[in-house]
Design a protein around this nucleic acid. Structure first.
Lengths: 204, 204
DNA sequence: ACCTAATGTTGATACTGTCAACATTGTCTC
DNA sequence: GAGACAATGTTGACAGTATCAACATTAGGT
């Protein structure tokens, strides 16, 4: 615990993850480098291998933490809503705001290794994020603001729309400013919700 | 033109692009390597630099070609539709099919360099794809199948939904088989279109 | 026929991920 | 307490990469 680091760091794994999170937010996944993470943690270039099998496993941990933060962002944003439908819409807003604020982190969560899903933390954190969304939908259904039934199809639709907006906006494919994106997202959510009140008969 | 390659290849740029397209379809952007492209074109590791400033510029060309193919896929798919609304829906289907069939190529188009848009071909090809979508929407509007006005907001909504489905599905975040994804996409398109007939008053 | 620019090649540099061998230290048993 | 062992860090190597500089070959205009 003295200021001159002892040979054994004590909680290097946590420290590495922290460094990795900061690095990903600065530089994006393309130039994210294991050796730079080690450097920032003040440790030799091979020390990370005692805590993560390889680069992908570290990125998996980064992605999992990203999902946890995304979940928190959705909850915080939704909490400001007065009605269930409002909270549903604000949940999507939180998702998009997160993606715009941390585009590289967001990219790691969704676009990185071929199969990150072998890491249990990643799967758990991702499921939790989706469950959060489903919760707001179920709330709407209970309040008769959305058609009843399994909330999952509605959840996947809403997720897809919001994810698409987030992805396109964060790669500058939508001609909106940051606040413009959020207004557009509100309009899109509203449009989809209108459709959700009606359709939903003919799919399996 | 003899079988023993002369010193000057003749059309190396085209050959490199072809090799890059094949490589990206096999291995994905993460392991895409300039040297391997050169190897496959049967040329030294530095020859590509006479035709592309750097790796990103080659990837930009790959992405541009991807957009051209995407445009073609949407048009082909839509051509099977009887009504304007059907063609609109099938256009989205073509988009998603393309993304599922060539996930790595699709990823290069949307998720690669920080700013690919400096390459004019990339911008042109991307715009053309979007214009294609807008065309089908305008057709629907003329046939009174969608609410009239500027087709762009509707276009961005439809694009976002379809893009989200494509992205989530191709990274295995949706629990559907390939054909399941397409059915789901049809349902989602239908839902959004329902909403589009009603809403669309309160955005700028 | 020559000169120059275009196009390819060879060789180097500075990175990277990962492996193997070695060093240090916390912990558990006697 | 003393030593053994596993956990944790370090050093050094290897192969592979993007990119730069220097050099080689050739095409096309004079």
């Amino acid at each position: 615990m003295a200021t001159e680091r002892p040979y054994h760091h004590g909680n290097l794994k946590t420290e590495l993850l922290k460094a990795a999170l900061k690095l990903i937010s600065e530089t994006g996944p393309r130039t994210f480098t294991l050796r730079e993470v080690a450097r920032r943690a003040g440790v030799s270039h091979n020390a990370p291998y005692r805590h993560f099998r390889d680069k992908d496993e570290l990125l998996g941990a980064v992605a999992a933490e990203g999902f946890d933060r995304l979940t928190a962002a959705m909850k915080e944003s939704a909490a400001r809503g007065k009605t269930p439908l409002d909270r549903f819409r604000l949940c999507g807003r939180g998702y998009i705001q997160f993606a715009l604020q941390y585009p590289e982190h967001f990219q790691v969560m969704f676009d990185l290794p071929s199969s990150l899903d072998q890491y249990p933390d990643y799967a758990r954190a991702g499921d939790e994020a989706f469950e959060t969304l489903l919760g707001f939908i179920a709330e709407c259904q209970k309040a008769k603001a959305l058609s009843p039934g399994d909330p999952k199809p509605l959840g996947f639709m809403a997720w897809s729309l919001v994810h698409g907006i987030a992805k396109l906006a964060s790669s500058s494919h939508l001609p909106f400013s940051t606040t413009g994106v959020l207004r557009f997202a509100d309009a899109a959510s509203h449009t989809l919700a209108e459709g959700m009140k009606k359709a939903l008969q003919e799919q399996g």
